[in-house]
Simulated assay, not measured.
Amino acid sequence: MILLTGATGTVGREVVRALPPGVEVRVMAREPARVEGAPATAETVPGDYGDPRSLRGALNGVRTAFLVTGGVAGDEDARFLEAARAAGVEHVVKLSAAAVTDPLADDLITRWQRGTEDLLRASGMGWTLLRPRAFMSNTLSWAPSVRAEGVVRSLYGSSANSCVDPRDIADVAVGVLTDPGRHRGRAYTLTGPQAVTAVEQTAQLGELLGRPLRFEELEPERARSLWSGRHPAPVVEALLRSALRQRDGAKSGVEQTVLELTGRPARSFRDWAETRLPAFTPL
């Protein structure tokens, strides 16, 4: 039995869709009604990292689990791993982040991810770490201004990021979950096929939409103000520090891991954008 967490999130929903038929799977979600695309044979159960009873129920009979957490500096990983170990889970595949491998990355989010990786490695269970670069889908945050104004606003528009399609992360995750022994004790950095800048992404979106888009550089203080409406102050500062690392070239490296593990090249930003054009199209 495979347990999937994070099934309504960016990567988790793609993992659910990518599951091959015949795999015995259970999907845990705070709101099970929001789970979409699960196989007819999948079991969907309510579960919350803060509710030990729900974790015990979700983990009963599970051998392999996909772990996605988002509570920065919280104890979600510790709670889940404790329950998983008690339930006899043999292998945990964790969604982490590429920044953990950068010795110059010392922001709050990266320190938290490193700590959660350490918890898993020390758990006594088998483990695999998936470390993606930024999700291509992060550019969906541009959709409102693209639809209304034909404008993309972002920090450091000429800095490159080897961002990755969430579908590629999901395909790798499914391969690991269905053959965990082959990947035991491995950590995989996942990127797209090339590094792209926000200016280049803006141009590609404009070409696909058939309308000119303008890029406007955000000043750091403006970015801080915008992000403060969505994130706590410590997370905002971590995001700003992360953006500085990108400006300095820390996120431009390209890995061939998707090709090596799936047998096909990673999807490009244009590939991703072609499937999401309605989000950027004026109503």
Rank of each mutant, 00 (worst) to 15 (best):
S268C: 07
D248K: 15
L259R: 13
G192A: 06
T257P: 08
G229R: 12
R214W: 11
A273Y: 01
G175E: 07
L81W: 13
V25P: 01
S159R: 05
S162I: 09
A58W: 00
P278D: 03
P39T: 13
T44N: 11
S242T: 14
E149K: 15
P144M: 06
R34G: 10
H231Q: 13
V62E: 04
L67F: 10
E117I: 02
R34F: 08
V11G: 01
D48P: 09
R214V: 13
L140F: 07
V174S: 00
P20R: 11
A170R: 06
R26W: 00
G12P: 02
D75H: 12
R230Q: 15
R267E: 07
A65C: 12
V68G: 06
A279R: 12
N138T: 09
E24M: 09
A250I: 10
L277R: 08
V93G: 06
E274K: 02
T44E: 12
L208Y: 05
A273C: 04
P52S: 08
V199R: 11
E237H: 12
P193M: 06
T8D: 04
G150V: 13
M28F: 06
G115A: 07
G47C: 07
L226K: 03
P265E: 01
P193Q: 02
P132A: 05
L119W: 03
T69S: 07
V100I: 12
R63N: 07
G88W: 10
T139M: 12
G192D: 01
G50H: 03
G12W: 00
S141M: 13
P278G: 03
K94I: 14
P232R: 11
L177G: 06
R241Q: 15
A187L: 12
R186P: 08
L155C: 02
P20Q: 10
R131W: 05
A243S: 14
G47P: 09
D106Y: 03
R153C: 02
E260K: 14
V92W: 11
E217Q: 04
R121D: 04
L209Y: 05
R133N: 15
Y188E: 00
G22A: 05
M28Y: 00
G192F: 02
Y156E: 07
G124Y: 04
A279F: 12
P103E: 10
L259V: 04
G210A: 05
I109F: 10
T202R: 11
T110A: 03
N60D: 15
R34C: 08
S137V: 01
G185N: 04
V11Y: 00
R182L: 01
G185Q: 08
R79N: 13
L240M: 14
A87M: 08
L67G: 05
P166H: 09
S96T: 10
P180A: 05
D75S: 13
